[in-house]
Design a protein around this nucleic acid. Structure first.
Lengths: 200, 200
DNA sequence: ACCTGAACACCGTTCAAGT
DNA sequence: ACCTGAACACCGTTCAAGT
């Protein structure tokens, strides 16, 4: 596979990395692999993205922009609590054609949580987490500006909510007998209530 | 540093790996580093531990034999909130200088979350989770009987707290730059506050 | 069986050199 | 500014060869 013509190097690199994210779990975003698919040298890649993490952050930022574009966090006809709940639920199971099940949080976890995972894989996981936390924080700020959420430390709140999402994803990974989905939504609801009701 | 004499190669390797776990997070367990400290060749290391994961599993298995026992949940001289916090913290990170909960959790996830994991392995993971949830529930009941915790659904509370613990363990597994431990305790504290302050 | 060390195929990063 | 490709210092794994 080769990058489409008419794109500058930076765009070709991002395109190459994005296509590789969609492929099977084994294909990590190595400098050489991305550079080859983009049709540029490793040096050029490094010129645009001095560290590997910057490349990964850039491509994930773009991918998540597409996936989470239609966020209904601003729909004031729905109670703020429900909107936040929907928002964090979405982090748990991203939908849409660009991201199939492989790219979901669970597979990311499965892919990166191995003891012998490379430091690069861990970096990639961390940048996904950063991106998600950023989005939760944006949602919280919106609700706060709107007056629906009491003033508080949104960075701390976001960290808390994302931790609960993480924990819920483990429950998803190991479905227990019984109505698991219900349990998971229930736990998320507790966390959202916590954000609204306790002083954080 | 060099491995103590009078140990066979396998033991020297495990000793070397164990000492490296105790050092700062940056020092990964690379084949060459462990072999060098153990005073053996990489080939010898590979003879005893054909894959890197087997080495890591082996050293963690040994290290995890040292686990917590004394639970101070009943010590009424300490505020109930602090006792619950300590209790759930303990689930997360069994203490001791040589223990690294991070790697332990990772290897657990790897063992049980793989697609080709046996049903027995998943069952084992689920039973560990059940056991932990049971412990949390017992702690909650104790605090409730004592009058420190408002009446509520302890089963639901326990499920919530364990989910947070799970999520926190992911954060531990992928330590972000900054004071990670502080952040994790902070998140647990929010969850414990939530249990005490909101109606669950 | 146990051990050696070279070799292989990767990795991220750096850098002198070109345009 | 943008790009090249070699070089450096790592990785885990394999393997013919020794004892």
């Amino acid at each position: 596979m080769q990058a489409p013509e008419g794109l500058n190097s930076r765009e070709r690199i991002l395109w190459a990395a994005a296509t590789m994210l969609g492929e099977d779990a084994g294909s990590a975003l190595s400098v050489r692999a991305v550079a080859a698919r983009a049709g540029v040298s490793t040096g050029s890649l490094r010129h645009h993205f001095p560290r590997q993490r910057e490349l990964i952050d850039a491509v994930l930022g773009r991918v998540y922009d597409v996936v989470l574009r239609d966020d209904t966090i601003g729909d004031t006809s729905v109670p703020a609590r429900e909107r936040l709940l929907t928002s964090v639920q979405r982090l748990l199971a991203p939908e849409g054609p660009e991201i199939d099940a492989r790219e979901g949080w669970l597979s990311a976890l499965d892919r990166y949580a191995k003891p012998d995972a490379t430091p690069e894989a861990r970096e990639e996981f961390l940048s996904i987490e950063r991106e998600l936390r950023r989005r939760v924080e944006v949602a919280l700020k919106l609700l706060q500006d709107e007056g629906s959420l009491p003033p508080g430390d949104n960075e701390r709140r976001a960290r808390f909510l994302l931790t609960v999402v993480n924990g819920t994803s483990i429950s998803q990974a190991f479905p227990a007998p019984g109505s698991r989905l219900q349990n998971e939504i229930d736990v998320l609801r507790i966390a959202v209530d916590c954000v609204f009701e306790t002083k954080i």
